[in-house]
């Protein structure tokens, strides 16, 4: 009887673990089947090479490039903010700051990642954009710049905390060896610690990029809804995620070709993040083996 109970519990636990597998399976199946229907009507070549995205207009064009471009533009701006800041903070907290200061600042910075993203959207649209407009007069009310900058601040803790963890995992003896040879803190940090922690730092950056690509509410609120093939950040653009929100909130009839665009956009987004996540997971696994 007791043995039966043990077996029953174990089976239940396995079943619960399998929920995660079914989730992945579900995502892939949903995106794939709906996309297949989409690509029966739209040529895959047009989808990936077309430079206009106008599925909701009378004259429909299905080139995903403008959306991809918008997504990459905001992501690049965000990383351009978060990478130098996050990495500098990580090095400072690990090499210079008093441990008590680190113990206070790290969780406080992590609050940045806990603030709901719709709040950042509000901040970007109603504060940062007007502020920037006083410097850049022809900045559009919706623009990639302000959304990207705010997103960059949001993902600072992803880079700073994970990089700090990676730096901390570097054996103490290495740092002592560097100091022993008369290196300054700066030299120790950049010539010894950062290279030694490089894989962990790279993982943190990749995760931050993946996070920025998938971010929705900041760009949906502040970056606009105009698919545009441009790298100029002062214009209104549209990201993949914003487009999905736009269709979801509109009154596009189900089962229409217009509606199925969210699945083809979704699978594009999924593939991007899937590749990034797996690269980072792969690096992380290799890195762990190196240190153990």
């Amino acid at each position: 009887m007791l043995k039966f109970k043990e077996k029953a519990i174990e089976s239940f636990l396995i079943l619960c673990s399998l929920v995660t597998v079914f989730t992945t399976l579900g995502i892939v199946l949903v995106l794939a089947t709906e996309s297949v229907r989409f690509f029966q009507e739209v040529s895959i070549v047009e989808f990936f090479t077309g430079t206009e995205w106008t599925p909701l207009f009378a004259e429909k064009r299905f080139g995903i490039l403008p959306l991809v471009c918008g997504t990459l533009l905001t992501t690049v701006i965000a990383i351009a903010v978060a990478l130098p800041l996050g990495l500098t903070i990580a090095i400072y907290l690990n090499e210079y700051a008093h441990p008590k200061f680190t113990a206070f600042v790290k969780p406080t910075l992590e609050v940045l990642a806990a603030v709901p993203t719709v709040v950042y959207g509000f901040f970007a649209l109603t504060f940062v954009t007007p502020l920037l407009q006083s410097f850049i007069p022809n900045l559009s009310g919706f623009n990639a710049l302000s959304a990207g900058l705010v997103m960059g601040v949001m993902i600072i803790p992803y880079i700073s905390s994970l990089s700090e963890d990676a730096l901390r995992a570097v054996p103490k003896s290495l740092r002592e060896a560097a100091y022993g040879m008369g290196s300054t803190r700066l030299q120790t940090a950049f010539r010894v610690m950062v290279p030694a922690a490089s894989s962990g730092i790279i993982v943190s950056v990749i995760l931050a990029i993946s996070r920025a690509i998938g971010e929705t509410m900041i760009v949906a609120v502040a970056a606009g809804q105009e698919p545009r093939l441009t790298l100029n950040p002062i214009h209104s653009i549209e990201t993949i995620t914003t487009y999905i929100v736009q269709v979801s909130m509109g009154d596009v009839p189900r089962n229409s070709l217009e509606y199925s665009t969210i699945f083809s956009a979704g699978i594009t987004l999924f593939i991007f993040t899937f590749i990034l996540n797996n690269v980072s997971f792969f690096i992380k696994k290799k890195f762990q083996q190196k240190y153990e």
């Binding site: 673990s17 995660t20 597998v21 989730t23 992945t24 579900g26 995502i27 949903v30 995106l31 709906e34 995760l207 993946s210 996070r211 690509i213 998938g214 971010e215 929705t216 995620t241 999905i244 929100v245 979801s248 969210i262 699945f263 979704g266 987004l269 999924f270 993040t273 899937f274 990034l276 996540n277 797996n278 980072s280 997971f281």
Partner: peptide, 25 residues
Amino acid sequence: NFIEVNIANLAGVPSIIYGILGLEL
């Protein structure tokens, strides 16, 4: 090992994709 990789992946899937899954499933 497979489940572990899978969970690491799910943690990185953008939340809007979960929305698409929920919508359909």
